[in-house]
Amino acid sequence: MRRAPLMVPLLAMAFSLTTVCAHAQTVRDAVTESLSQRLFPSLDALERNPAALDALQDRPGVAAMLRARLDRRAACGADLGCVTQAMLWTDGEAQILAAAMPGKGADDGAAAQAAREIAGVNIILRTYGLGQVPPYPQIDGAGTIDPQESRARLQAAAWLSQTGRAGSVQALDPSVEFALALLDGSDRIDAIGFEPLQSGLNAPAMKRAKSLDWTRFRYSAMIVTGVGPEVEGMPLSPFGKYHLRLAAQRFAAGDVPFLIVSGGRAHPRATRFTEAEEMRRALIERYGIPADAIVIEPYARHTTTNLRNATRLLMAMGAPLAKDALIVCNPGQSAAIESPQFVTRNARELGYQPGTVGRRLSPTELEFRPSPLSARVDPRDPLDP
């Protein structure tokens, strides 16, 4: 059914976008709260530290910058496209806020983490608000939508950005809430689909990892990369099934305690299947692999993030990062992972190497030394930060 034309007057811009009703601050939105914490941990933490937030807002450079942003939005009046454009952070504004951010941040500091989060806000605004084509349009973004639907999503995001939510950073700037509302309105809250990741299907393996003697095994884990199907309604691709046969055969050697199956809900767009879930099911049902030996990584949509996210899980399991893991996949993908082009791609898309590819053991097996740099949260990919 097509939505009826918007009949509600465009009142969203009739008052300041930083105006939030006092009583509404007590209202919690569990989905938006979880998404905010996942995508924007340093910005989100400000609301739980009122003293730090007040100090940040009171800094002369920050206060003037935030006032200029407010004036820019107000000048748009009821023009939703203009307001969305005005929500974007300029390079100068981002630098001012990032430099003033308190706390330790990620391994490269609070300013660097804040800069990534602000860049993530901009990417969401451009992709889901202004219609910019994402880097991987076949699986990212909102897809092709009717202009009327696009306008409705912008209007809803504008209203939501000025409607109070407990735990938000609306008091600092409404752009974060606006970005979160755009993702929610587009049904692209992929980033929190399996949180907390250490529970649910991963609970048996996580429990076993706590008491595991890692020295008994040659490798910390086997990383089984995904190869998403391109056919609607297909749970696993033919290559994916080949990966599972390889993984089961290799697991039988007994020198790997866990299989980390990595693959999100990506191919084809809007598929109902999460590749890692389907891989886990097949390993248990077809090959008899114990559930407490399988860890799902259900977010990755690229080979780069297969390795990054698997490393994050190894860290959560308490695995020694000084111990090699094993990458198992088809010969073509394995060769690509070993190539200089993959190093370049990691640098371009992640900003670092998620680990070091080591010895080749066979056409389908590579050793891999994971890197703690993989812990960096990066909402520039808002579906898998």
Rank of each mutant, 00 (worst) to 15 (best):
residue 91 D to P: 13
residue 154 L to E: 01
residue 335 A to C: 12
residue 348 R to D: 05
residue 126 R to Q: 15
residue 15 F to P: 07
residue 120 G to C: 02
residue 382 P to Q: 01
residue 323 K to W: 06
residue 100 A to T: 05
residue 181 A to F: 01
residue 304 T to D: 14
residue 188 R to S: 08
residue 17 L to A: 04
residue 4 A to D: 13
residue 112 A to C: 00
residue 195 E to L: 14
residue 243 H to K: 08
residue 54 D to I: 00
residue 9 P to H: 01
residue 229 P to Q: 04
residue 354 P to I: 05
residue 209 A to P: 09
residue 294 I to G: 03
residue 288 G to Y: 12
residue 70 L to R: 10
residue 264 G to R: 15
residue 18 T to G: 06
residue 346 N to C: 13
residue 266 A to E: 07
residue 133 V to M: 14
residue 190 D to H: 15
residue 272 R to D: 08
residue 122 N to F: 07
residue 330 N to F: 09
residue 215 T to M: 11
residue 106 A to P: 02
residue 86 A to P: 03
residue 106 A to K: 08
residue 352 Y to C: 10
residue 19 T to S: 06
residue 181 A to Q: 13
residue 57 Q to K: 11
residue 303 T to Y: 15
residue 279 M to P: 00
residue 141 G to R: 00
residue 104 K to D: 08
residue 220 S to D: 01
residue 249 Q to N: 10
residue 242 Y to F: 14
residue 194 F to K: 09
residue 31 V to R: 13
residue 325 A to W: 13
residue 15 F to G: 10
residue 308 R to P: 00
residue 278 E to G: 04
residue 161 S to C: 12
residue 125 L to A: 12
residue 124 I to N: 02
residue 366 L to A: 11
residue 352 Y to S: 04
residue 282 A to E: 05
residue 75 A to M: 01
residue 11 L to H: 09
residue 364 T to A: 12
residue 286 R to I: 11
residue 277 E to K: 14
residue 349 E to H: 02
residue 87 M to G: 01
residue 274 T to E: 00
residue 289 I to E: 01
residue 148 Q to V: 00
residue 34 S to A: 06
residue 40 F to T: 02
residue 14 A to L: 07
residue 326 L to F: 08
residue 57 Q to T: 03
residue 334 S to H: 08
residue 231 V to R: 11
residue 70 L to M: 02
residue 224 V to D: 05
residue 136 Y to R: 14
residue 318 G to S: 01
residue 343 V to C: 13
residue 178 F to H: 12
residue 245 R to Q: 14
residue 194 F to C: 06
residue 97 L to E: 07
residue 120 G to K: 09
residue 338 E to A: 15
residue 227 V to Y: 14
residue 382 P to V: 03
residue 96 I to Q: 08
residue 273 F to G: 06
residue 187 D to M: 15
residue 117 E to S: 07
residue 219 Y to R: 14
residue 247 A to N: 02
residue 162 Q to M: 10
residue 329 C to F: 11
residue 40 F to W: 04
residue 302 H to L: 02
residue 331 P to R: 10
residue 88 L to G: 01
residue 220 S to C: 12
residue 107 D to C: 04
residue 9 P to E: 04
residue 273 F to V: 06
residue 287 Y to I: 14
residue 206 M to P: 00
residue 372 P to F: 07
residue 297 E to R: 13
residue 222 M to S: 12
residue 33 E to R: 12
residue 35 L to G: 07
residue 138 Q to Y: 08
residue 47 E to F: 00
residue 295 V to F: 05
residue 117 E to W: 07
residue 210 K to E: 12
residue 32 T to Q: 11
residue 14 A to R: 08
residue 123 I to E: 15
residue 243 H to D: 04
residue 364 T to S: 09
residue 244 L to V: 07
residue 204 P to S: 03
residue 163 T to G: 05
residue 329 C to K: 09
residue 28 R to P: 05
residue 270 A to S: 13
residue 36 S to E: 07
residue 364 T to V: 13
residue 119 A to E: 12
residue 122 N to L: 09
